[in-house]
Design a protein around this nucleic acid. Structure first.
Lengths: 238, 238
DNA sequence: AAATGGTAATTGTATTATAATTTGGTCCTG
DNA sequence: CAGGACCAAATTATAATACAATTACCATTT
């Protein structure tokens, strides 16, 4: 009942945003291409510049377009970083249950391992990079630093699969997961780093099954702590 | 070089959006909770109401909050459907390579299968639901209808894992994948439906390995068609 | 020809006004 | 006294306008 309006009656700025979207699609514009100015759109759509402005601002948030004085509007690039800045926290609010989030992490991260093994066989620098990050992690002395490096390790692990789409999804998952790292006890840091080491060593050996087992265990170790309930809708399904 | 501004100099509306986000986090607000009015925020942040309005509009696009006259601002629910309206088309513009998108789909969809088998054993209605959707798909006579039902089948398949986070990610992937369905030849519809049937039958038998193999093959069959190159950044990994 | 500075175009921000909508209360009626 | 209808106030929705800030482009000068 809450979002009933979203279909029955679109706000004007949403309509305008849709028309700008259509403009991009119909003209087959690619990132970097220029769009008409805000005033131009306002005149063309017969609305005030404020309405256009709200639409362009919102689309700017999504990374769909960029706006700069004198340059005007240009088609942008979707940036997961930009998105996660606003969406990541919301999953902390919307509360997916811990168990589901952990299981999702396992799926996404282990899903990339086979590709990692494949690429690592051709390119030894991949191992070195992961190893270097883990060394940094070992040197962490403060929680925020540790969190940052731990996230970087896991993101790099998935990125090493070469599947940028999967890496993008993983970026999101990691952000949603952040709250579980906030109270990660220092006593467990060391064993975490060792887990990482074992995982990348298994990958270098080409032992994908072992790496999968270790990573599943590693992520699953978070189950020890917490798990709030929640209610989150899924969309298309049903 | 394009998005350099995004870190060096945030627009005021982005700053305001960030502060509203922080407000929600700091007050531990949950979906449905009320926020101060736009005027209130404007006074509190020392900016004009237009700046607040741009922020709230953008956050409204993302589903992070709802705004209604007299009711004011309330914390919203993230809706993948809402997001995909604006992001889906952009991935068609931003162009992930087909191969990567296919591989990502395989990871996400097959990753949920083990959970599906588990839940299906306890709840036969899950099979019935998937079977019903596939029957609908079999009756499709028009491309748009077919696309819609095919997406619904695959989304329901992942949703059947019970992992709502994974289902949300999958919703996104399906939207990004849409462009590959646009020119799906009618001649292949029938074999697609049969693949679906074999998959859910394998799941009902508890044969997860077979289902995984079939689904991998099913999704991979898209490889026959196309594959544009692209350049898309990944974020955290570097 | 290159560098430098100015100018104009375009977005960024603020102010104000008015319309539309919805909640909540109040008043009237049975 | 209860219930419904209506009215009013609060709040968002939209618009019009003005000015500041920024920067791409051009002209001018050295």
């Amino acid at each position: 009942m809450a979002g009933a309006r979203s279909d029955s009656k679109l706000k004007k700025s949403e309509v305008v945003a849709g028309r700008i979207r259509d403009y991009i699609v119909n003209h087959e514009l690619k990132p970097g291409d220029r769009l008409p100015t805000e005033g131009e759109f306002a005149k063309r759509f017969g609305v005030s510049r404020v309405a256009v402005r709200e639409a362009t601002t919102a689309l700017g948030f999504l990374g769909i377009l960029d706006a700069a004085p004198r340059r005007g509007l240009t088609v942008g690039r979707v940036s997961m970083k930009k998105l996660s800045r606003y969406l990541g926290f919301h999953f902390a609010v919307g509360n997916y249950p811990a168990e589901e989030l952990i299981a999702t992490r396992i799926v996404v991260e282990t899903g990339g391992l086979a590709h990692v093994v494949e690429r690592m066989a051709c390119d030894p620098s991949i191992y070195q990079q992961l190893d270097a990050i883990n060394s940094e992690l070992r040197k962490a002395r403060e929680l925020n630093e540790w969190i940052k490096m731990d996230i970087r390790f896991h993101c790099s692990l998935v990125a090493a699969s070469g599947l940028r789409g999967l890496a993008a999804l993983n970026d999101l998952v990691q952000v949603f997961f952040r709250r579980f790292r906030e109270d990660f006890p220092k006593a467990l840091w060391k064993s975490g780093v060792e887990s990482h080491q074992q995982i990348i060593d298994a990958l270098r050996r080409g032992d994908c099954a072992k790496a999968t087992e270790l990573l599943t265990e590693h992520i699953g170790s978070h189950r020890a702590r917490v798990g709030k309930p929640a209610e989150v809708e899924s969309d298309f399904a049903e």
